[in-house]
Every structure is written in structure tokens, then in C-alpha cells.
Design a protein around this nucleic acid. Structure first.
Lengths: 206, 206
DNA sequence: CCCAAAAGTCATCGGTCGATGACTTTGTAC
DNA sequence: GTACAAAGTCATCGACCGATGACTTTTGGG
């Protein structure tokens, strides 16, 4: 009933946004052309301007798609492990294989991208992490840990340094615990959380 | 004798390289145009192709200019502080105000830039840092610390998060010592080294 | 069936890009 | 002082960019 429609405004919009996320993440804002993005989506480039007004508008809407913030929930002593695990080992194939924050660095000459990066980092990561410390410089500690996570993501998926690229969650866990405990001056777990992949039959009414 | 020459090939080459470092650092490889770079250097854009063959050749030669590696020398327990201090508080005005490694992330969609980043990070930073640990995963520890430094640089000069942007060397010192000591499993100093800015009249040898 | 609106395409504009080669200016050796 | 080579400029090319508006195709209601 709803399937024989081949012309579908919202579906085409979504395909354009998806293609834009890929291209912007892989090539950066300047190098990604509207024609290429529209080609990936299988439509004409003129539709980009009809739907998003300009290339900039397309970028903003593509970047505005929030990254899931589920790793924020859970016990505080697991939060650093949760965040790092999400950044490194979640499936970010929709963003050319990199976490959006890492991919966005390629467009960091673009003001919109910088603002988006800062808002996402400060509003989400730092805000959650700074609760781990009671020290007066809790915000600095939270930013320092965010910097570490972002740096690990960069070295892993952008620069491709050998040890971090090959590291498994188990390899990182002890160092994560040590660094986070030192930075927040309290015990922090390093084991990555496996909550989404629950067992098939928990046996209880969850 | 050698000064009344106003047309000077090597001097013009250097001016072009300097302008290129600025533009590539600030705008990224794609967004920086040969015409703008040549304009900054005060010459015609055609000289870029005469001297460097192509825009890519200009980028490679501009990026190949080594960043000074003096912070590598000194006692090992000071090495992390030395590196971080150099990355954050040295005068990088020749690279648009950012450490070359941080600025190069803007061009990270370019293969040459990625290779250069990896070589510089692994060949210089990781190689020096991994001597701080005797553990079998010393390389991973060194990469993790390099990731932290790079991330701090990114948050400070690219993203501009408030706490790290406002932090002084003294603010960072205790956290640097804590994190480095935890990561390398040995005491590491957090105080930044002030060797280059010696007092005006030391008055005593050594 | 017909038609209007929506969805998508096409041709094209002005501008800029990297790159090339002919041309002009400058310094210098004879 | 003149000729020659180096240093630098200028005009221009083809390609691609973002963007626009007229055009064509599809969809769905009467």
C-alpha cells in the first residue's frame, strides 16, 4: 500500500542526509561536493538546494542528527568505560566508520562544525563526566578525559597508529581504569559494558 | 653585495612555504587555494607550480619542514611534561597558532597528511614515550599518552572547550603527573620545563 | 481521463579552482 | 651597454563548484 510510491520526499531527504554524513565524514566539508552526495543518494544535485537551501544547510542538518547518548545512563563508575567503548567499538558505519565527533574534525575549518563539536563535547560528554569529581576543577578533569577519548579515536581511525588500532576493549580496560581513576581521584572501572547485547531469555519481566 | 637582490628564488620559496603552512593549517588542504597562498606571499600563483610542481608538492614540502624536537632531550621523568608543554604553550604562530600535528588534522582527508601525521606521531612521540615503560604493551601506553596530548591540543585550539582553553601549565601539571604516572606505572613529573626561556643573566655556569 | 501539485531532472550561469605557456621585468656577466 | 638567463607576471584553459530556474515525469484526487 505504501510501497509502490517511488517518489518520496522524506525518504529522499533521508537518503541525502545519509550520503552527506558519509561524504562529509570521509572527505571533509570542502572536499565533499553536492554533486557527489546527490549521486550517492541516486538523485539530482538540484534536490539538495530544493530541500536544504544550500550546501551549508545540508551540512548543518546532517550534523544535527544526534548521536545516540545511551551510554550516558548507568552507574557513574562505569561511565568512562561506557563512553570510550561507545566511541571506539560501536558500529559507526553510518558515519564512514568513525564516531561523528572524530569525523567532524575533518571539517573543523568550518565554523558550524567547530560549534557543533564544542556543543556536543561540552553539553554531553563533559557535562556527564564532571559529576565524577568533587574537586573545584571538575570541569577541567572532565575535559581532559574527553580529550583523551577523542585523541584515542583520532589515533585509531584517522591516523591509524598500530597499537591503538589493534587494541581490543580488554587491552584498553586496565589503562582506562588507571587513567580515569587518577584523573577523577576515585575508583573507576575499566571494563566495557555489554548492556545492549542482552541474553536471549533474561527470564524476568524487564 | 647579496642584499640589493630583490628577486630571490630561495627567499620567495620560503615565503611561499610559510604562507602555505599558515593557510593549510587554518583552512585545510582543500579549502586553501594556491592563489590565496601566493597572494599572502606577495607573488603570482604561477610561481607555486614553477617551484613546487603542483599544489600537492607544495603541501608535502610545507609539511615536511620538521617541527623542532628539542623537547625530546632531558630526563625521562620530565618527558611527558616537556612534550605537552611544547605542544600547548610553545609559540606556533608560524602554523596559524596551532601545533602542526593538530593543524594537520584539518587536512586528514588527504592521504599525504595522514601519512605525515602517523610518521611524526609514531616516529617521534611514541618512540620516545615507550621507553618510559617496561611493560609488554609499552607501545600501547605510549600511544595512549600521545592520544591524550593530541586530544588536549584539539580541545584547546580547535574545539575551544572552556576549561582546557583557559588552563595554565600550573593547572595542568598535577593532572599530567597523575595520568602519566598511572599510564606508565612509574613516577612522572608534571611540572613544565622552562629551559629555553633562561633568565637574562644567570651569573653562574650551569 | 484529466489536471494540478509534487518530485525529480536538465541546462546553464557565474565563479573559482589547479595548471600551463607566453610574456615582461630584473639582475648580472661580458 | 648589451645580451642572456633567471625571476616574476599575465592571459587563459578546461574542469568543477554551488546555485538557479525552467522543464519533465510521476502521483493522486475529482
Amino acid at each position: 500500500m505504501a510501497e509502490p510510491r517511488r517518489r518520496n520526499r522524506s525518504a529522499t531527504r533521508q537518503r541525502l542526509l545519509e550520503a552527506a554524513r558519509h561524504r562529509f565524514a570521509k572527505e571533509g566539508y570542502e572536499a565533499a561536493s553536492v554533486r557527489d552526495i546527490a549521486g550517492d543518494a541516486g538523485v539530482d544535485a538540484a534536490l539538495v538546494f530544493r530541500y536544504f537551501g544550500s550546501k551549508k544547510g545540508l551540512f548543518e542538518e546532517a550534523a544535527a542528527a544526534r548521536t545516540p547518548t545511551t551510554p550516558l545512563d548507568g552507574p557513574p563508575e562505569e561511565l568512562p568505560a561506557r563512553l570510550l567503548h561507545s566511541l571506539l567499538f560501536e558500529d559507526w558505519s553510518a558515519y564512514a566508520g568513525e564516531h561523528p565527533l572524530v569525523a567532524m574534525l575533518r571539517s573543523s575549518a568550518h565554523d558550524e562544525a567547530r560549534d557543533h563539536l564544542r556543543e556536543e563535547l561540552c553539553g554531553t560528554y563533559v557535562r556527564a563526566l564532571e559529576r565524577l569529581s568533587d574537586a573545584p576543577d571538575a570541569a577541567l578533569r572532565a575535559e581532559l578525559f574527553s580529550a583523551w577519548m577523542l585523541g584515542i579515536g583520532v589515533l585509531r581511525s584517522v591516523v591509524g597508529t598500530p597499537a591503538i588500532s589493534a587494541a581490543t576493549p580488554q587491552d584498553l580496560a586496565p589503562h582506562l581504569a588507571a587513567v580515569a581513576s587518577a584523573l577523577f581521584d576515585r575508583p573507576v572501572l575499566g571494563t566495557p559494558p555489554p548492556p545492549p547485547e542482552a541474553t536471549d531469555h533474561p527470564g524476568s519481566p524487564g
